[in-house]
């Protein structure tokens, strides 16, 4: 059924801290590794060792430069995977019902046996979260590691998405965003977590924590430091004057 549920019992999703992400791409590798081996259909590449390697990924890291007139440029690393939107446009456009949003936890999934590979869901997604598998020709997307988070075969510590589990900087957090008491909800409240492209009215579940302002904190020791001499003194003063006269 491609009609969206009115309400989901839980709203599982990710909170991604743009202040902390160091752009190491470890989550990309962990995601690719888990999803390529955990599912029978894999997550394939085309020409992986050839001239033009390419492949399907469910999580990718962009890097952006932010420039300002009054401050040095900043680089922000920007992980992007499916945002499991509450008003997911990828689900409603699907003609076969292969795409669906789960009522119990809000995860958006694809039933690969029903996917005809028309690609319309990828067109409908503003975030580029869906990619066609070059080998199996069905649509792939982030499952929020649905085969990890409920998997009782795994140690409890591993029952979270592979990207979250692997992040060495703790920039990715997983939890129930419908529960105001959850750690992720508190993070979002404390750090003013934001939606990507809010004007698209997709109501994304995943939230992004904006980078914190930094310069103010660096100046704590500034009064204790000796000021840099503006005017040369002693030998340098003589040399400066002598060179000026030449």
């Amino acid at each position: 059924m491609t009609a969206l549920p009115d309400k989901t019992d839980r709203t599982l999703g990710l909170v991604i801290d743009l202040d902390i992400c160091v752009g190491c791409h470890a989550c990309v590798v962990a995601c690719k590794g888990w999803n390529d081996t955990s599912q029978t259909s894999g997550l394939s590449d085309s020409d992986p060792y050839g001239e033009a390697p390419e492949g399907a990924f469910l999580n990718r890291i962009h890097s952006y430069e932010i420039t300002r007139e009054d401050a040095p440029a900043t680089v922000v690393h920007f992980p992007k995977s499916c945002l499991h939107c509450e008003d997911a446009p990828c689900v409603t456009v699907c003609p076969t019902g292969a795409s669906f949003k789960r009522r119990e936890d809000g995860i958006v999934l694809v039933n690969e046996d029903d996917c005809i590979g028309c690609g319309l869901c990828a067109w409908a997604c503003p975030y580029g979260a869906r990619e066609m598998d070059p080998t199996t020709q069905v649509m792939k997307k982030c499952t929020l590691c649905v085969d990890r988070i409920y998997n009782e075969e795994l140690p409890e510590i591993d029952r979270e998405p592979a990207c979250v589990r692997t992040c060495p900087a703790n920039a990715r957090h997983f939890g129930d965003l419908s529960d105001p008491g959850s750690a992720v909800s508190k993070l979002v409240a404390a750090r003013e977590g934001m939606d990507l492209m809010p004007e698209m009215d997709t109501r994304p579940v995943n939230k992004y924590l904006p980078p914190r302002p930094r310069d103010a904190e660096i100046d704590v020791l500034a009064p204790l430091l000796e000021p840099v001499a503006e005017e040369p003194r002693g030998f340098l003063k003589w040399l400066d004057a002598a060179l000026d006269r030449i």
């Binding site: 743009l18 990309v28 033009a52 390697p53 390419e54 492949g55 399907a56 990924f57 990718r60 890291i61 962009h62 890097s63 952006y64 430069e65 932010i66 420039t67 300002r68 401050a71 900043t74 680089v75 922000v76 920007f78 992007k80 690609g119 990828a122 067109w123 503003p126 580029g128 990619e131 066609m132 070059p134 934001m194 939606d195 990507l196 492209m197 809010p198 004007e199 992004y208 904006p210 980078p211």
Partner: peptide
């Protein structure tokens, strides 16, 4: 700016794409 949510910090420019080649998204869209 709205895509990254970073518009309030200044002028945003893509510094580096996630990968060196093309992907399904760039070819299709």
């Amino acid at each position: 700016h709205s895509a990254t949510g970073l518009g309030m910090m200044g002028t945003v420019r893509s510094l580096e794409a996630p990968h060196t080649g093309e992907n399904y998204l760039t070819r299709e869209m």
